[in-house]
Each structure stands twice: as C-alpha cells, then as structure tokens.
C-alpha cells in the first residue's frame, strides 16, 4: 500500500463525505425531494448493512465459509441478540469482539 494511495483515499473520501452531508442541507432546504427518491433513500441504510454483514460473515476475506465452524457466523448471532436486548451499538460491538476471540480460541 503506497503512501500516495492512502492520501488519495483520505482526500477524496473527505470531499465525498462532506458533499453528501452538505448538499442536502444547503439545497434541500430550498426545494422538495421527489417522493420516490426519498423512498429509495429510506431503504439504502438497511440494504447496505444487510449486504455488509452477509458478505463479512459468510464470505470473510472474500472466500465462502459456509460451515458451522465459521467463527464469524458463530459470533454474529450472539452479537445481534445482545444488541436486540441492550440497544447499545458500543456494548454489542465490544461483546461481539470478545465472543469472537473466545470462539477462535476454542476452535483453535
């Protein structure tokens, strides 16, 4: 990974992030978004998280791992339950990491 590659990502990511936050505030306060676009936008966050979790858990590192000894799958299930009960993203994240480390130790 070259230094210029990392800097390019940092600079462009900052610009893109600012744009998606600022343009709606600056422009939308002066107009209305079309209803179908708002509806589409409302499904984007859940879709992004669904695709991310499925890909990270069932294809960690880009390889299929469809097995009951998959530590990502075994740790994701209690992580989801912990979030469902506690409603704490931070608590579920930390608990999930510890569970994952424990499962890896057990599976060797």
């Amino acid at each position: 990974m070259t230094e210029s590659y990392i800097w390019a990502v940092i600079v462009l990511m900052a610009a893109a992030n600012f744009a998606v936050r600022f343009v709606p505030i600056a422009v939308v306060s002066r107009m209305r978004l079309p209803e179908p676009f708002v509806r589409w936008l409302s499904y984007v966050p859940a879709s992004v998280m669904g695709s991310l979790v499925a890909a990270e858990v069932l294809r960690p590192g880009g390889e299929y791992l469809l097995s009951l000894r998959n530590p990502y799958l075994l740790a994701a299930i209690p992580t989801a339950l912990i979030y469902h009960r506690t409603r704490s993203v931070l608590g579920a994240t930390v608990a999930g990491m510890l569970i994952f480390a424990g499962i890896q130790a057990l599976l060797g």
């Binding site: 998280m49 979790v53 990502y72 740790a75 989801a80 979030y83 994240t93 990491m97």
Partner: peptide, 18 residues
C-alpha cells in the same frame, strides 16, 4: 482481542437497529 471482528460486530448491531 478480536479486533478483526470489530467491523462485522458493529455492522451487525447497526443492521438489527435499522
């Protein structure tokens, strides 16, 4: 410390929330 599961864990929690 299970750091490689930090991202999947956070995404899992956010998924349930959303």
């Amino acid at each position: 410390w299970g750091v490689e599961f930090a991202m999947p864990a956070m995404f899992t929690a956010l998924l349930i929330a959303l």
